[in-house]
Computed example of a mutant assay.
Amino acid sequence: MPGDLLRRPLIVLAACGCLAAWSSNTHAAPPRLAVITAPQAPRLTLDRATLRNIFLKKIFVDADGQRLIPVNLPPASPLREAFFRELTHMPDVQMQDYWNRQYFQGVSPPYVLASQQAVVRFVATTPGAIGYVASCHADASVQVVLTLSLPASAAVAADCDGSAGH
């Protein structure tokens, strides 16, 4: 019995050490925003400037003449806001004004899909499609062509724990 009393503090300390190690592993780096294409990526250099022009519909086709189809998340999505702020440095109001002007010139904004899962499925099966999702949602059916940092507000909405939208 005296030996049991001596072992208890060691067991508690060991358990606390395991708990500390476990908790530090569960708080991994925040997700990043992944720009995705179908496995056969468009023949373009997909850097920030080119992506900006694709999503602003200033570039319509790749080097082979493949039509480019940018897709967005819904307007209220923090990931959409983070993506456009990173690429265009325009606030939402300015983006809305841009698309109002474009629409009257015959240029429609990118398609809007309801969820990150929908973006992955659409991009994976649509030649020329380009979208963005939290990096944790990109799977083997798509190719990640660029990753961008997410601000904390968008990282919370990234839904990487799988709790919503499946």
Score class of each variant (00 low, 15 high):
95 M>F: 05
144 V>I: 15
44 L>C: 03
131 G>T: 09
138 A>G: 05
27 H>L: 07
40 Q>G: 07
114 A>E: 07
22 W>F: 15
73 L>M: 01
120 V>A: 11
151 P>A: 10
19 L>A: 15
46 L>S: 13
103 Y>H: 12
29 A>E: 13
9 P>G: 14
118 A>W: 01
151 P>C: 06
65 G>H: 10
14 A>N: 11
160 C>D: 09
33 L>T: 02
147 T>V: 09
64 D>V: 00
130 I>Q: 05
102 Q>L: 11
82 A>Q: 05
154 A>K: 00
50 T>G: 02
43 R>W: 03
87 L>D: 04
116 Q>I: 08
107 V>R: 01
62 D>K: 10
84 F>R: 13
23 S>W: 15
42 P>T: 09
40 Q>S: 10
25 N>K: 02
3 G>E: 03
1 M>R: 08
96 Q>T: 14
8 R>G: 00
53 N>V: 02
74 P>S: 12
108 S>Y: 06
147 T>L: 09
118 A>R: 10
83 F>S: 04
29 A>R: 12
143 Q>E: 10
44 L>R: 02
112 V>N: 01
98 Y>R: 11
102 Q>Y: 06
58 K>P: 00
44 L>V: 06
31 P>H: 14
159 D>G: 06
151 P>M: 14
46 L>C: 12
21 A>W: 13
115 S>C: 13
139 D>W: 07
82 A>H: 08
73 L>K: 06
96 Q>F: 10
121 R>S: 14
30 P>R: 04
82 A>L: 14
75 P>S: 03
77 S>M: 05
119 V>H: 08
14 A>K: 03
